[in-house]
Amino acid sequence: MKNYLFISLSLLILFHFHCSTSNSKEMEAEVMTDTNYGYFRWHNSIRDGYVVVDTKVFKDPSGCHGDYNCSSQEHIKKMANLRPSDPSMAIPLKVGEYYAMTKLRYGDVSFFRCKTSDLKIYHGFQFKDPYDPKNPTVPYTSETCQFLKEDKVVCPSIKISKKNIQEINITEDEIREKSISFRHLLESNIILSTISLFYCGPISSQVDFISVEDRRY
């Protein structure tokens, strides 16, 4: 009976995965034949570990007042786990100019040699330094991405034209900063925290070594 349930569950998962993949490909083909749309795409070129991308895309950055208070108006939000086996995520957008804020987390779990890295990416704008509460943002007009700090990057705005693709490519770079992290021990899920402790040990390396590149096709 247990074997039967296991086989049934496995088939159900495979069926769901196949359907999700098919729907995604069909949507991609449909959008690229519609001249009113283009793509904003993420691509992970790091061979080991995984990259979790959490992106919020919006039209007007003037209402941003910090990383967690940006564009309360209509926006598009997408999240994906980009592993080497499935490295891309594409967001279909209508023709026009967009701004975005992205939280990017990298993780590579190997026995007692775990490492993580976190980046925040601003697309098309950045916060003023020093911060001005009445006019907090300033447009970013360069056509290349630039590091503001070890863990903060600013990239060009998202400009969608007919059937074009604007892509952020993630690659390895030189280590900019390295520190010791206990974050994996503070998981809200006690089971995950216990597994992390057993597998990663009491500490892990938190490094900033990711490079981001804006490309257009």
Rank of each mutant, 00 (worst) to 15 (best):
T137Q: 03
D173L: 06
K78Q: 08
V138D: 00
R41Q: 15
D34N: 07
S204F: 03
Q146F: 04
Y37G: 03
S10N: 04
D108W: 01
N44H: 05
G38Q: 06
C19D: 15
K178T: 15
L197V: 01
D108G: 04
P84I: 02
Y106V: 13
V51P: 08
S204P: 07
E213P: 14
K162C: 05
T35D: 12
I175M: 14
C145Y: 00
W42S: 07
I165M: 13
Y131F: 09
K2N: 11
K2I: 09
K149I: 02
N23I: 13
S188P: 08
K78I: 04
R176Q: 11
Y50F: 10
I168S: 09
Q206S: 10
L186I: 02
P61G: 05
D60H: 01
F17D: 00
S8E: 08
C114H: 01
I158E: 08
R113G: 10
L82C: 08
L12H: 06
F15P: 02
V153Y: 00
H75E: 07
V212K: 04
I13Y: 00
S205M: 14
Y122S: 00
K77Q: 10
N169P: 09
Q126K: 04
Y99N: 04
L119D: 11
D214N: 15
K103T: 13
I91D: 05
E174L: 14
K77Y: 10
P156V: 08
K178P: 08
T116E: 13
L12N: 03
K25T: 15
K162Q: 12
A90E: 09
E143Q: 14
K94F: 03
T116P: 06
S110E: 13
C200I: 01
T102Y: 06
S117R: 05
E30M: 13
D60K: 02
K25I: 15
V109Q: 09
T102S: 09
S157W: 03
G49M: 06
N164Q: 11
F182P: 00
P156K: 02
K152I: 07
G49F: 07
S196R: 00
A29Q: 15
K2Q: 11
M1A: 11
P84Q: 04
W42L: 10
